[in-house]
Design a protein around this nucleic acid. Structure first.
Length: 468
RNA sequence: GGCACCAUAGCCAAGCGGUAAGGCAGAGGUCUGCAAAACCUUCAUCCCCGGUCCGAUUCCGGGUGGUGCCUCCA
């Protein structure tokens, strides 16, 4: 069996991934909770969810930590606008996060720490940095001395001097160097603040993730990541802080997912061309969003368009119909076993092997999806052929379909609920009409059910009820 | 200015040295009372020009076009 390879931003190469201990320690930069999350955020959550599911699928234990940034300028701004406290805003959008994330079938992290729960450790880390000469306090603020960390720029592969020359003119005269960044910000009136050796204040953004990663996972973790735009400066700064303070590697692997584009432009807050996950879900459904994300390689940019989303929806439908067809046939009069079962079932193993092979290569979910569709076609073909498969084969095929889709977080079964009596009665009435060759009545009933969101399919084994 | 990424059918998207996976859409057919679903068939010399090689979509060089990071952003 092949080995799992992941592209590591640090080395710009695909490397064989093995956790340092018996559990892969993964940290993903979670949302700043001041609003619903957009589909770009969704991509990062889904990508890391797939990473986690896949590692586990391959027998690696995973501890995944995803934070909530619950103290931040944007949250404060929103709170002021609405006359609420920052923590009320944060609380609300954490709840909203889980609504969308659950609907996207994103498993909850093992720990969802909040920045405000880890202030003490942040202060400690800042103190260490000051003691070691990597940071300095100026009038209630504390800055990281970027030039004191010689490896600064190793993640974004820029030299510190190039960064400096490209840096915008910084208005803050108190910084020793334009590249220095805030570890601690002195409190302004009306802002949430905590007592510190440098006075009342709050932590900077970068220090939060450094601290939460090491607090919940340890000083050297296996994988850290987020969207590509976090690589610089956020992740670069995290590395600088953590490694300067701890004297050991912060994360062995860095994974960065590509953006979602709209009209081939990066979807961003400043451009205002972003779509909330919830709004997109209302039009296309959460599952189509997930499929859209998983149908391309995680490092490629993907373009969000109505055409693509419609295609995603139709694709999901195809998988579900296949699964429903299996369920339907399982209840039919097919033989339990068939002499060719063994050969057919062993053929199924080929799909699993191919799936693993492509996914091992830096989580190639696009190829993974292709394997799933090949499987779907295989199953459909066998079901359509004169020689019907056995229930034993169908069970194996359905299990494999669920297994592979499960790794990508694609749900295979529609939540059908109960078939209520009314529908059953109508279907039977229609059957009677058909038998009597009264097709007019039969079609009327079919149209009526269609309007209720129920599609009837007449198959050789009887009428199949499909809900959409 | 510095540092990266990308260019494959109508749309999306894999492959990355041996002559193009998969999905959506389209066309034709089979099945069906009609449908639906499904199945079968069909739909690309991989941006351009050089080079290396027996052989390049895949490697190298040069163009052209697009995107991103260097500023809060997944």
């Amino acid at each position: 069996m092949s080995q799992i390879k992941l592209y590591n931003t640090l080395t710009r190469q695909k490397e064989v991934f093995k956790p340092q201990g018996d559990t892969a320690l993964i940290y993903g930069c979670g949302p700043t909770v001041y609003n619903l999350f957009h589909i770009g955020n969704a991509r990062m959550f889904v990508v890391f969810d797939v990473l986690r599911r896949y590692l586990e699928y391959r027998g690696i234990k995973v501890k995944y930590v995803q934070n909530f940034t619950d103290v931040d300028d944007k949250i404060i701004k929103k709170a002021n606008e609405e006359g609420k406290t920052s923590s009320e805003i944060a609380e609300r959008y954490i709840a909203e996060y889980f609504k969308d994330a659950d609907a996207l079938n994103i498993r909850r992290a093992d720990v969802h720490p909040r920045a405000t729960e880890n202030i003490r450790q942040m202060i400690e880390l800042i103190e260490t940095l000051i003691e070691k000469g990597h940071a300095y306090a100026v009038g209630g603020d504390v800055y990281f001395r970027t030039r004191s960390f010689p490896e600064y720029g190793k993640l974004s592969h820029q030299s510190i001097d190039d960064l400096e020359s490209g840096a915008r003119i910084d208005v803050d005269e108190r910084k020793e160097d334009p590249l220095d960044f805030a570890l601690w910000k002195a409190a302004k009136p009306g802002e949430p603040s905590w007592q510190s050796p440098w006075g009342e204040g709050r932590p900077g953004w970068h220090i939060e993730c450094s601290v939460m990663a090491s607090t919940y996972l340890g000083k050297t973790i296996d994988i850290h990541g987020g969207g590509q735009d976090l690589a610089f400066p956020h992740h670069e700064n995290e590395i600088a802080q953590s490694e300067a303070a701890n004297g050991c590697a912060f994360s062995r692997f860095w994974l960065h997912n590509g953006y979602i584009n709209v009209d081939n432009k990066k979807m961003s807050k400043s451009l205002g061309n972003f779509f909330m996950t919830r709004d997109a879900a209302e039009v296309y459904g959460y599952e189509a969003i997930r499929f859209f994300i998983v149908s391309a390689h995680y490092r490629s940019p993907i373009n969000y368009t109505p055409e693509v989303m419609k295609a995603a929806k139709a694709s999901i439908e195809r998988i579900k119909i296949c699964r429903e067809n299996i369920n339907f046939l399982m209840k039919s009069g097919l033989p339990e076993e068939n002499p060719e079962d063994c050969a057919m079932i062993s053929e199924l193993r080929g799909f699993r092997e191919r799936f693993i092979e492509v996914m091992d290569d830096d989580l190639n979910t696009a190829d993974g999806v292709a394997v799933i569709f090949d499987l779907v076609r295989k199953i459909n073909t066998l079901c359509a052929q004169g020689e019907p498969p056995s229930k034993r084969f169908l069970k194996a095929a359905g299990d494999l379909l669920d297994e592979l889709c499960g790794v990508l977080g694609i749900r295979t079964t529609a939540d059908n609920g109960r078939e209520d009596e009314e529908i059953k009665a109508l279907v039977e009435k229609r059957n009677a009409a058909r038998k009597a060759r009264d097709f007019k009545t039969a079609d009327e009933i079919r149209d009526r059910l269609k309007a209720m969101g129920i599609t009837l399919e007449d198959t050789p084994s009887g009428v199949k009820i499909v809900r959409k």
